[in-house]
Amino acid sequence: MTLATTADDAMPVPKARAWTRERVAGTMLLGLWAAVFAALAAYLVAAWNPELFSRWAPAYLSGLGTTMLLVVISTLLGAILSVPVAWGRMAKNPVARFLAYCWVYFFRGTPLLAQTFLIYYGAGSFSGWLQEHGLWFFFREAWNCAILAFTLNTSAYQAEILRGAIQSVPKGQWEGAASLGLHTVQTLRKVIMPQALIVALRPYGNEVVLMIKSSAVVALITVPDLMGQTRLAFSRSFDFQTYIWAALIYLAVVEALRHGVDWIERRITRHLKR
């Protein structure tokens, strides 16, 4: 496991440091982690089963593909949907504000798992009605239901990120742009968004991480994602290492993403550093 945070620890150490209480505690905790990782590695080596691996590796890969595709599609669709919602949250019109507030509150106030079940099995109980109205082709597929549930859910979170970012830009920027004769859309595009996106980058990154993690529930509505393949592998082999593999894959993906966001952030904020 690599950690970004070790980078700034790499200062030259000129003289031997004293064994303070903190250092003793820290060393012991690191020792504990080392023991945990060593035990885990030893377990994985001892339990290594090439037959099991070759049987399930393709399934894990396709599961990972399903997970990533689900996250990418619903995050993008959610981003589009979040624009009107964020606009509603900041609108002067009280009706729009109320509706947007309810939207955000509902999707952020109830579990994604419950929303997914509600859409998937709920649609199933209205299949007759949906067929009459030509909507069944969409709700018939578990994949579409999962995309819908995840898009709606993330749109609420992304709307709040967008709103927070736009409102983080000082009022003076709006006024300045107005005094230069820019209209609202121009101001948003040329003045506000470039500043807001810097603020929003990290929350967006976190939201994608959250989506990857919460996508693990779609296996419960028959979408064969990474978690679904893992449960299948575990229930066939009863071998606990199948879960450890999944944990390592999820950790690797999430860490890669986090480092990617860090890297982008460093690049786009270069002009802000002296």
Partner: peptide, 16 residues
């Protein structure tokens, strides 16, 4: 200590 703490959060924030 910082490293030990960071390992902890990396793992439990990264796992579903």
């Amino acid at each position: 200590l910082r490293l030990a703490g960071n390992i902890y959060t990396t793992i439990f924030r990264g796992l579903p």
